[in-house]
Simulated scan of single mutants.
Amino acid sequence: MKPMNILPIALLASALTFTAGAQNATADKTAAKKVEKTDNSKGSESFMERYYAVQATYPALKTLHGNFAASSHTQEKFIERYNQIKAAYPKLTDAHGDYAGSEYSLDEFTKRYFEIKDSYPKMDKYWGDYAGSAKTLPDFVKRYNEIKDSSPDMSDAYGQYAASDKNLKEFSSRYYGAKDSKTAMPCYGEYAGCSKKLSKESK
């Protein structure tokens, strides 16, 4: 009996394995693109659509509905982040929604939270707003003082303005636009500070 030549068989098996791996990698990339496309489509939802969707799913979490509506997270991701900070810092109830809606890791968020808490202990209503924002502390405080000095009638939205990228004129326009629409959503500041449309019909 002639000895079997193992080398060609091994090379063939290796080639088949490589081809299968390449096909799997291509399939994974295709799936990733589909997921990315789905996530991007979520970004086109209006503030009201997101608000009423999370309100229907989690009616008891009233203080978080605005945070979710203004964020870019899916409900699943938002609630996952909410549960994460709730478990790690149960006493930081004023900041649970701010963290859940932010893009920061828990370590980054809490570092910023305690930064403003230590520096401005009397601004406790706004610690979470700052921690979840992209602002530096001096910039946040500057913007807070700006709206506080010029718009006392928007006192419920001082933190959202200070944390946002809107100028005061644009923020005010969005705030009063939502308020005048009588949508019955008690989160005008969250809407005014985000980039989402109020509703599908909004321009």
Rank of each mutant, 00 (worst) to 15 (best):
K2S: 12
P3R: 13
I6R: 08
P8G: 04
P8I: 06
A10Q: 13
A13N: 06
S14H: 05
F18M: 14
A25M: 09
A25H: 08
A27G: 00
D28Y: 08
K29D: 06
V35S: 10
V35D: 13
K37H: 10
T38Y: 12
N40E: 14
S41Q: 14
S44H: 08
S44D: 11
F47Y: 15
Q55F: 00
A60V: 08
L61T: 05
L64T: 00
H65Y: 06
H65K: 01
N67A: 10
A69I: 03
A69L: 03
A70Y: 04
S71F: 06
K77G: 02
I79T: 07
E80W: 02
E80R: 06
Q84W: 00
I85S: 09
A87W: 02
A88V: 09
A88W: 03
P90H: 12
L92A: 12
T93C: 02
A95S: 15
A95G: 09
G97A: 09
A100G: 07
A100Q: 02
A100R: 01
G101N: 05
S102C: 05
L106C: 06
E108P: 02
F109Y: 14
T110G: 04
T110N: 09
K111N: 13
R112P: 04
R112V: 07
Y113M: 07
E115H: 04
I116H: 01
D118Q: 10
Y120N: 11
M123H: 12
S133A: 10
A134Q: 13
F140V: 03
R143K: 15
D149Q: 12
D149L: 12
S150T: 15
Y158K: 02
G159N: 11
Q160L: 10
K166W: 01
K166H: 13
L168K: 07
S173Q: 13
K179N: 08
D180L: 11
S181K: 14
K182F: 09
T183P: 00
T183F: 02
M185W: 00
M185V: 15
E190R: 14
G193S: 08
G193Y: 07
S195D: 15
K196A: 08
K197F: 12
K200C: 01
S202A: 15
